[in-house]
Amino acid sequence: MDRISDADRPMPRLEEQLCFAVYLAGHAFNRVYRSVLAELGLTYPQYLAMLVLWECDGLTVKAMGERLMLDSGTLTPLLKRLEAAGLIRRERDREDERQVRLYLTAQGESLREKGRCVPDSMARALGGAVDSRDRLLEQLNALRDALLAATEPA
């Protein structure tokens, strides 16, 4: 059986690339989220940080970074903006001064109720099909896990 050399293989088209489809889907998500989150006064990364704190108030910055897969250089400016907006406060841990803990302010806590509408708004944007949303979420999580596993040292 003859093998086709790389030089003889046609160049893949942009539209055939999975990475490009994910990239464009990400842009489309951001566009929808931008309009939905404008009512909350949050950017998408700020919304993610608030979601984490709504789940677990008092988390350390390190734990937040691990949850969001963000390094401190990216996370710190985001947290400073949330603090300046009066939504969170940062405090040194009483037992370990090296750790900084994140707490919701009363204003940040009150935003939780408004934040409850975001998943419904996104479901409407996706056509409201909850069962397909759950299946898509499962597939995307499996994709993420496979890609992360491929980048781990052997």
Results as ranks from 00 to 15, higher is better:
Cys19Glu: 15
Ala28Pro: 00
Ser35Asn: 10
Phe29His: 13
Val22Ser: 06
Arg34Gln: 11
Ser35Ala: 07
Leu14Thr: 12
Arg31Cys: 05
Gln17His: 09
Ala21Asp: 09
Leu14Pro: 06
Gln17Asp: 14
Leu24Pro: 00
Cys19Thr: 15
Val22Phe: 11
Leu24Ser: 07
Val36Tyr: 00
Arg34Lys: 15
Gly26Thr: 07
Arg9Ile: 11
Tyr33His: 11
Glu16His: 04
Leu37Cys: 03
Cys19Asn: 14
Tyr33Ile: 05
Gly26His: 04
Glu16Met: 00
His27Asn: 14
Leu24Arg: 07
Ala28Gln: 13
Ala21Ser: 13
Phe20Arg: 08
Val32Tyr: 03
Ala28Leu: 14
Glu16Arg: 03
Glu15Cys: 02
Pro10His: 07
Val22Arg: 07
Gly26Lys: 06
Leu37Ile: 03
Arg13Asn: 06
Glu39Lys: 10
Ala21Cys: 05
Ala28Cys: 08
Phe20Pro: 03
Val36Met: 00
Leu14Val: 14
Ala28Val: 10
Ala38Cys: 01
Leu14Ile: 12
His27Ser: 13
Ala28Asp: 08
Gln17Cys: 13
Gly26Cys: 02
Tyr23Lys: 04
Ala28His: 09
Gly26Asp: 11
Ala21Pro: 00
Val32Ile: 04
Leu18Val: 07
Val22His: 05
Arg13Pro: 01
Leu14Tyr: 15
Ser35Tyr: 10
Tyr33Met: 15
Leu37Gly: 01
Val36Asp: 00
Met11Arg: 13
Ala21Gly: 03
Gln17Glu: 14
Pro12Glu: 02
Ala28Gly: 03
Gln17Phe: 06
Gln17Thr: 10
Gly26Ser: 11
Phe29Thr: 08
Arg31Pro: 01
Gln17Pro: 02
Glu16Ser: 12
Asn30Tyr: 06
Arg9Met: 12
Arg13His: 11
Gln17Arg: 14
Phe20Gln: 09
Leu18Pro: 04
Cys19Gln: 13
Glu15Gln: 10
Ala21Thr: 11
His27Asp: 11
Glu39Gln: 07
Arg13Asp: 10
Leu24Gln: 10
Glu15Tyr: 03
Ala25Gly: 05
Glu15Ile: 04
Leu14Ser: 12
Ser35Lys: 09
Pro12Gly: 03
Cys19Phe: 15
Phe20Ser: 06
Leu24Ile: 04
Pro10Met: 01
Ala38Val: 04
Glu39Ala: 11
Ala21Gln: 15
Met11Phe: 15
Val32His: 04
Pro10Tyr: 03
Met11Ile: 15
Ala21Asn: 05
Met11Gln: 10
Arg34Trp: 09
Phe29Gly: 05
Val36Thr: 00
His27Tyr: 10
Tyr33Ser: 12
Ala28Lys: 09
Leu18Trp: 06
Arg34Ser: 14
Cys19Trp: 14
